[in-house]
């Protein structure tokens, strides 16, 4: 290999570990009956046999996580269909262990993992290992599942594809929005990790609301609001009635003591970053 490498900079290393984004078909299985899976797979694949020839495939165990799966038989049948099984996702701990035992990787991703909101770094790492595809190439044994599920899957998965391409967009693209209906009181702190925060009740003096994404407050805002705390400079803060003690975006903050300017005091405002400068303007 080394002889083919022209770039002198990397000639002295044998390997380089890099990341890339792949689109993989996902085989969602609904039964532990290998014969039934085979029969249905053959029927469904035959029209697209060429397209899927030697295609790497991820087995999704979400629907069968309570069943015992014969992974050996399953990978055998997939390779008989010229599919290269590369990993499993979802599934129980036990299933994952068994999958590893037959040489499959356990890949993360999919709606469940995303909703639970992993740290951005973790997600970035996961992305280097694998990336799911949105539902077009999903091989569902039942193709016309409910459209809402399909939509939510696309929505939940698309940020993963994007954040592989553009790390700075990742924070604001995450969909785990947190909605608070109770007043946030003095001494309380609410943190929307990995997403936006919407507060439908008052944020009182001495309370602190924090989000990795944007913050919306549809009631008097008298506490402290910190948006984009993981560094997202595109995050914004929207308040229906601005009376905040402190506003911060991506670490740039303004403190308001008794000097809240009349043009924003108790008004509907938004706060955003213009370069390093934190702008608070009436809506």
């Amino acid at each position: 290999m080394q002889s083919e490498v022209e770039d002198p900079v990397i000639q002295d290393v044998a390997v380089d570990l890099k990341g890339s984004v792949f689109t993989l078909p996902v085989l969602q299985i609904h039964s532990s009956d290998v014969a039934a899976i085979e029969a249905e797979l053959v029927e469904r694949l035959s029209p697209a046999l060429k397209f899927f020839k030697h295609a790497p495939i991820v087995i999704d165990l979400e629907r069968v996580s309570h069943l015992e799966i014969d992974f050996h038989a399953l990978t055998n049948l997939l390779s008989k269909q010229n599919l290269v099984s590369v990993g499993v996702r979802n599934g129980s701990k036990q299933q994952q262990a068994m999958a590893i035992a037959v040489g499959l990787a356990v890949v993360k991703g999919g709606p469940l993992q995303n909703v639970l909101g992993e740290s951005p770094n973790r997600q970035a790492l996961d992305n280097e290992r694998e990336t799911q595809t949105p539902s077009e190439s999903r091989l569902e044994t039942k193709q016309n599942g409910s459209s809402t599920t399909a939509a939510s899957k696309v929505e939940a998965e698309s940020p993963r594809v994007r954040d592989g391409q553009n790390d700075t967009q990742q924070l604001s693209q995450n969909k785990s929005t947190k909605i608070i209906y109770q007043p946030v009181r003095s001494g309380q702190q609410v943190y929307a990790k990995g997403g936006d925060l919407i507060v439908m009740a008052a944020v009182n003096p001495g309370a602190e609301i924090v989000a990795d994404g944007n913050i919306h407050v549809y009631a008097p805002m008298k506490g402290r609001a910190l948006a984009g705390v993981m560094g997202d400079q595109t995050a914004r803060i929207f308040c229906q009635s601005m009376h905040a003690e402190l506003i911060a975006i991506a670490g740039n903050f303004r403190v308001f003591e008794d000097n809240l300017p009349a043009e924003i005091r108790d008004k509907s405002v938004q706060a955003y970053l213009d370069g390093e400068q934190l702008i608070v303007s009436q809506l």
Binding site: R185, S186, G187, G206, A207
Partner: peptide, 13 residues
């Protein structure tokens, strides 16, 4: 009032 607000937060948590 501020301290009562704090106590209300504790009651609800």
């Amino acid at each position: 009032v501020r301290d009562s607000d704090r106590i209300l937060g504790i009651l609800s948590a």
